[in-house]
Each structure stands twice: as structure tokens, then as C-alpha cells.
Write a protein that binds this DNA or RNA. Structure first.
Lengths: 205, 205, 205, 205
DNA sequence: AATGAATGAGGCTTCATTCAT
DNA sequence: GATGAATGAAGCCTCATTCAT
């Protein structure tokens, strides 16, 4: 708790923040350490006082985004027991966290995905392990769905598959929003998603 | 129309094919021209007889994938007038085209997306223009939905938003399948997607 | 035997030659890849077509010098069976090989020694293993000495130690010659060494 | 003469001591200022309160080793007038000083030599001047030899050359001992050196 | 047309040195 | 005086691209 530690951590966070913005704007591959340094308002060499390599910065960014999202989602789900409401919340919080709030570095998600996919085989799972993250995410959602089915509010659907689809839809929406934010009204879309999800699109007649 | 031209085109296609496989496996950024040459079984310099640069190869790959998908989807939709059936077909063909058939280079989609997103601002090559592609794709789907609503088979939903969601779900499913193919049964999932889309998950009581 | 292989090997040798001259003049640590490139009259990147790293160049230089010396010494010893003569030859050939002929890169020996010493613990023995080289060298000399003792031409001395000393003297002479070539008449000194070695300096009275 | 000055000198000596150990272990080129700071148990910046640069530390180390050796040899030679005994002493003291006692930083000699050799041309600092040191060393030994010849205890040999050889043998022995200390019994070897030097190896018949 | 040897711009990273605290 | 965070020059190496064969 010495002031130095606080400073160090704060500065590390600052650099990470700057790096994420540059990553988001230029893509990880085309981001130069010099870009990060400029964005952080420090010297090139200073980065290496806080991160061992460019890759480590990338991993840290990955961790941070996922940690943050997981925390927020986890918290929000504890505010109610109603599966319908939980599903709404999960979708809403995901939207807010991943997308609207994090607008600045949403673009970085592409590189997370790209790298996470490739890392599957080769690299250290510890740092960038999308598989685990998505598995947990799916469990969370299928849990809600199962709960809802048991409570009789949901039809008996294939919860595992539907969980995957819901995540897919969210990721996909984000993807489109990243590409064409001006064409995608996130709030409206997620509302429609929730409505569609609940009621389907076919006339129930 | 001389045989040489045919040869040239054939060889260009071969190189492109090889490039896409390497792109998919290693990612565009980490793919070396040498890798492509080896994969194509030719010399490094020969690539430049057919493509002006690495970027051009990438753009060509992008074009090819999208062209192919658009053609297949367009064709399949002409086989029926039933909006429900068209929606099914669109989802099914997308699954097959983008995913199952193209398993080998599905990974490349990540880079298409990533690059497509970034290109938005910097250099609108006209070659990699995701915005346009997705806009067309959305039009296609919302057309089906509007048609369905008009014909009374669909509830009056926000078709623009729902079109976006359907695309989102498809992209997202592909994303997850790329990440964890062993956990995602594409056929089942798209079936559930279609079912969920049509009927919703809530008990209609 | 294709011309390409010959060219490649020849060019590799050229680069090695250039590198050794620069190593000798500036020391390995202060030698820049750019220096080697200039000395070899090629581009910086071209070096990497033939060597994987600066360290590999250094190892190759090491190998070459030792291989060459070992060959020459081995050959010369086969020209006679007389231990006295063999000892003379060994000293003479060592002088010529290591020193006079190789004047240009004698300075590099310092770095061989320095690196060889340090490598003892840490690194791959395969490339720079002074221990083995000197052990073999000692065996060779003590073999001659033992032979001479058995044949009655040498006093019964501690051959292992004397072998070490002879090598030491040769290395040390080289060391001094490297430092002050103008003060050291190599031929005279090795003659005195041989004479001193044979007869001692004390008056035999 | 204030206590502070004494402290300063003491601390400077401590740092030098630490530096020499690290130099010996890792080699000068690969020694980082940070390594020295850690070894000395001080902050990196503190080193610069006592030395202007890394090079200055190296020069100081060089000076210290040579000064110390020169003093010890000079002292020991004054204990007798017998040239034979003086030669024995010189060899013994050299062995003890340079080698056994200084085991820890014997490795640094390599860098002294290497740097000393290179400095010859480029920058005669006056600090690292091997030429002068060896010239004095040779004078000392040839003086003993001449004295011995004059006194009739040595055969009339080429004293200048033999002096060079003796130094060479000592340096070379040290070199080998640095490389393979477990194979070299320094005491035995220098004894054999003295014996061989005095009596030669040939049977005097 | 095909090749691959050659190239050098440019990237990441290291580390001696400075300087504010 | 002591410190270590900050710095940027400089090094090694990669790789897209060129071009002589």
C-alpha cells in the first residue's frame, strides 16, 4: 500500500488504456509500440517498465475487458430470480458493457477473437482462452434457461443450443454495430431480440 | 481467350486458394508471402506475377468468399415464395456456405471483419467494404420479413432490427463455431435458431 | 553438386570471412550486423539468408578456426615418428596456423576464449566447447611426450602437466603477439620455446 | 580526510568489487549496470555517484588487478638475490595472485585482454594499456634472466624471447585453468613449468 | 513465365544514462 | 547522497517486394 505501488499500478492502467485505444483504432497488428507511447504520453522505453512485450499488453487488455464484463453481468443477475428478467438483464448489461460504454475499444474485440481463435492450438491458455470464457458464458445462460423451463415460464427448448444462439446473437450484434454503428440502434435491436426471443415472430394463431 | 489466359486465371485461383488456407490457419498478419508460396507449391516471386501485393490477395479472398455466398443465397431464395421457407433457406445456406463447406478458411472471416472494420475510416478501397455487403444482406432479409408480414405469416415486427439480429445470430454462431467447433453442433443450433425465431421461447399461454 | 549449392556455400564462406575480419578488429560484442554487411559488400538482410543470427556466425567462425587448425596439426604429425620432431612440428604448425597465417583474425581468439569460458555453464556445448577442444589437444601432446619417454628420448616428466604447459605457452605467446606483434618475433620465440623445452635453461654442469 | 571521504572511497571499492564479480561471471559486454547495482546492494543511479560510466568501472577494475599483482610481485622479488629463486617466486606469486586468490574474477582477465588488445588502436586511454604492462613485465623477467646468466647459473639464452615465453606460459596456464579448473592442478603445473624451464625435458646424456 | 537471392525499411526491445524526488 | 522511473538511441532481426537470371 505504499504510494509507489499505487502509482505503478495506476500508470500501468494508463498505459493499458492508451494501448487499448490504439489497438481499437489501428488493430493490434498494425499498432506500433511507438503509437502506444505517444498515446500514453510517455517514452517508448517506458512501456517496458510496465509490460514485458506488446503481446503482454494485448493479453492484459483481453483480461481486463473480460473481467469487467463478467463482474458486471454477475452482479446484475443477482438482483432478481425471475428467469425472464435475468435474460433481459444479461442482454442489456452485455450490450451496455461490451458495446456502448466501451465504444472506444469495441474494435479491439475483433483482435481478441482472432487471436483467441488462433491461440487455441499453439499458445498459453492462461492468457487468452476464449474457449473457457465462452463455455462459462454458455453455462450461465443455459442455467437461466433451465431454471425458466423448470419454473414453467419457458417452453422446453434445447437450452444448450439456445444459449449458444443467444451469445451468438449478442456477439453478432456487436459485430455489426462495430461495422456500422450509425445503422444499428443497439437499444432497439436488443429489445427486439428479447421480444423475438420470448415470443417468436410467427403469429401465434 | 487463349489457353494461356485460362492457365493464368487457373493459377491465380490456385494461389488464392492456398493463400486463404494459410490466412485461415495463421491469420493474415502472421502469414508470410513465403508461406503462401510454399502452400501453393510455387516460388515466392511467382506470386507477384498474379497479385500485386499481399493486400491484394487479401482483398481477392474477401471478394471471393462474399461473391460465392451471395450467389448461393440468391439462388436458393428463388426456389420458393414462402417467407418462412425463405428464412429457413437463408439460414441453412449461410450455415453451409460460410461454415461447413468452407470449414478450412472460416478462420479468415475474423480478419475480414477486422480489416473491414478498420478500412471503414482509412481507405475505402471499394474492395473490402463490409458496410455495403451487410447493408445488402440486411435488405434481403428484411425484404423476406416484410413480405411475410404482408402475407400475414409473421407478426408485425421491426423488420430492420430483426434482420440485423438474424445476421448477427448467424455471424455469432459462426464465431462460436470457429472458436469451439467441437462444442457447437451447427445443424442443431441453426434449427433451434429457426424454431426460436419462429415461435419464441415463452410458453404461449 | 548443382551450381547453386556451390554458390551458396561460397557466399556463406565469404560472409564468414568478412565477419571474422570485423570480429577481429572490433570485437564480437561491438560488431554490428551492419558492419559485417558492409565488409561483405552485401545488404544487411542478406546475412540472414546464410546465418540465422549473429551468434551463429560467431559459432561458425569458431568452428572453422578450430577445424582448420586441427586438420593441419593432424596432418603434420603424420610425417614423422620422432617425438622430438613431432613436438617441433606441433609447435611450428600451431604458430603458423593460429598466428601468422591467420593474422587477420587472430584477435578473434580472445572472444572465442571469452565466450567459450562463459559457455561452459550456460549454453549449448555443441557449438562452442573449448573444454573438449583443449582436452583433445592435451591428449595429443601428452601422447607425443609419453611416446618420447618410452622411446627414451625424454626424461620421465609429468606428461599431463607438461602438455598443459606447452599449450599454455603457445596460447600465451599468441596472446602476447596479438597484443604487441611488433615486439614479438614469433619464429624466434617458438624456437627458443622448443630449445628451452628440450634443454632447460640451467647450465647442465 | 573527513570521514565522508573515507566512506566514499570504501563504497566505491565495494561497488568495484561487486562489478568485478559480475564482470567475471557474465562478461563485461553482457553485464548490465542493473546487475552491478543488485550485486552491490544499491540503487542503479547510485553507481553514477561513484563512477562516470560503465567503461570507467571497467578501467578501474583493470587498474586494480594489475596494480595489486605488480605490487605483490615486486615485493616478493626483493626477498632474495638468487635468480633461480626469483624466477620461482615470480611464477609462484603470479599463480597465487592472478589465479588462486582471485579465482572469483579470473574470468575478467579475458575481457581485460580483449579490450586491451582493441584499445591499442582506437583510444589509448592510458587506463587500459596492456602494452606497457607487458613490456614492464617482460623487462622484469629478462632482468632476472640476464642476472642469472651473468652470475653463471643460466645458460646464455635469448632472454627477451624467454621472458616472453615465461609470461606466455603463465598467461596460457591461467587461460586453461579458467576454462577447465577441474582438470588443471595449478600448483603441480607451475612446479613442472619451473622444473621444465630449468632442466628441459630431454635426457641430458 | 518462374524463381529465389538480395534488399532495406521498419519493428520490437534493450539498456546506459539522466534527473526529479 | 540515494534512488529508480523515464528515456531514446541503437541493435538485431523480419519480411514484403524487387529483379537478374
Amino acid at each position: 500500500m505504499s504510494p509507489k505501488i499505487i502509482d505503478k499500478e495506476a500508470k500501468k492502467a494508463e498505459i493499458l488504456q492508451a494501448a487499448m485505444q490504439v489497438f481499437s483504432r489501428k488493430g493490434v497488428a498494425k499498432t506500433r509500440m511507438a503509437d502506444i507511447a505517444v498515446a500514453a504520453g510517455i517514452g517508448k522505453g517506458t512501456i517496458y517498465e510496465y509490460f514485458r512485450s506488446k503481446e503482454e499488453i494485448f493479453a492484459a487488455a483481453f483480461q481486463q475487458v473480460n473481467q469487467r464484463a463478467a463482474n458486471l453481468i454477475g452482479q446484475s443477475l443477482q438482483t432478481t430470480d425471475d428467469p425472464v428478467e435475468q435474460l433481459r438483464l444479461l442482454i442489456d448489461v452485455s450490450r451496455q458493457t461490451f458495446i456502448e460504454e466501451s465504444a472506444d475499444f469495441a474494435g479491439i474485440m475483433m483482435d481478441f477473437w482472432a487471436e483467441g481463435i488462433r491461440n487455441k492450438d499453439e499458445k498459453i491458455l492462461g492468457t487468452i482462452n476464449l474457449e473457457q470464457i465462452y463455455t462459462e458464458y454458455r453455462s450461465l445462460i443455459s442455467g437461466i434457461l433451465n431454471d425458466g423451463i423448470q419454473k414453467g415460464v419457458f417452453r422446453p427448448v434445447d437450452t444448450a443450443s439456445l444459449a449458444a444462439i443467444i451469445i451468438a446473437a449478442l456477439d453478432g450484434v456487436m459485430l455489426q454495430w462495430i461495422m456500422t454503428p450509425e445503422l444499428i440502434d443497439m437499444k432497439k435491436i436488443t429489445d427486439v431480440l428479447i421480444d423475438g426471443l420470448m415470443n417468436g415472430i410467427k403469429r401465434s394463431d
